[in-house]
């Protein structure tokens, strides 16, 4: 790690407190001139592709989930070469500490962090509370273009297996803990799209058999920061009964809200086998002959 860890007590109880930084910590780094150096690059990743341009953390760079991280043709992420070109161009080296923040409670920031993980980038962290908290605290934003010194990033092949699940993996996983992080009406099958996202629909409504419904927002406090360790344990460990040795898969609609939950399980609660199913409902709900359960109950394991 090349930027210091945020020592604040708030994060102490999390399994991997070094994965979060506070707005105060980022302010200190900014004041010390550390942002935008080979040690520390701050990345904004939003749902809205123009939000960064309206004002961003001074010295930060932008990475967009659609136009940068997704392969433009195939439904997949970019490959190692494209990733090296992308992040190298943002001044990120293999050893650089990357701090990501964004809109919508860090959904897209968590998603970007998860994609960095696919490429094995070691030191990547989230700004707790994201863009909204930074702005609510009246901290500096600018529309100035950030000066970037491009870095040499090695071409690393993506290693999907540890943190990414495909449809076949989910089929094989049925019976193990599965978390559906969508809203209740999406889970029950009342609607095939998220309330505000009608363009990302599926042909059938419902959920994957045995999946429990824990909407992503359960892990977020009203100010967009993550809930405390004790609160998160109560939801996932005691509430959903997920044990330390369990393999867990989380999914939503396209894998962005479940990246938020993946971050919670992997980094804040320290589960070691957590995967995000990014195909999520837009794949499952349109796939032929996969089992689906409708209604508010998880439902039974299909007999195969």
């Amino acid at each position: 790690m090349t930027a210091p860890v945020d020592p604040s007590d708030t994060f102490r109880d999390y399994a991997h407190p070094e994965r979060l930084v506070s707005t105060a910590w980022l302010q200190d780094q900014l004041d010390a001139g550390a942002v935008g150096t080979a040690d520390l690059v701050v990345v904004e990743s939003d749902e809205d592709v123009l939000l960064y341009e309206t004002g961003h953390v001074p010295g930060s760079v932008k990475i967009d989930w659609h136009t940068d991280l997704n392969d433009p043709v195939q439904r997949d992420y970019i490959d190692g070469e494209a990733f090296a070109r992308l992040v190298g161009g943002k001044g990120i080296g293999r050893d650089t500490t990357v701090v990501i923040y964004g809109d919508k409670n860090n959904w897209w920031a968590a998603y970007a962090l998860w994609v960095f993980t696919l490429f094995g980038h070691q030191d990547v962290r989230l700004l707790d509370g994201g863009r909204a908290k930074w702005i609510a605290e009246d901290r500096p934003v600018t529309t100035d273009r950030s000066a970037v010194t491009p870095a040499e990033y090695p071409v690393v092949e993506r290693d999907d297996a540890p943190v990414r699940a495909f449809k076949e993996d989910v089929l094989a996983h049925l019976g193990e803990p599965l978390i559906d992080v969508r809203s209740a009406p999406e889970y029950s099958g009342q609607r095939t799209t998220a309330p505000d996202y009608p363009e990302e629909g599926a042909l059938r409504g419902g959920h994957i058999p045995t999946a429990v419904n824990i909407p992503w927002a359960t892990a977020a406090a009203p100010d967009g920061t993550f809930r405390s360790r004790a609160e998160l344990d109560a939801v996932y460990r005691e509430g959903a009964g997920i044990g330390d040795a369990d393999q867990v898969i989380a999914y939503c609609r396209i894998g962005e809200r479940s990246s938020h939950t993946w971050f919670v399980l992997e980094h804040l609660l320290g589960y070691e086998n957590v995967r995000n199913y990014d195909g999520s409902w837009t794949e499952w709900g349109s796939a032929v002959r996969v089992p689906i359960v409708q209604g508010t109950e998880p439902g039974a394991l299909p007999t195969r």
């Binding site: 592709v49 123009l50 967009d64 659609h66 136009t67 363009e199 990302e200």
Partner: peptide, 13 residues
Amino acid sequence: EAVSPLRIRGMVG
């Protein structure tokens, strides 16, 4: 290309 095809569908709507 600049904003992505998915987003531009919002404008079509």
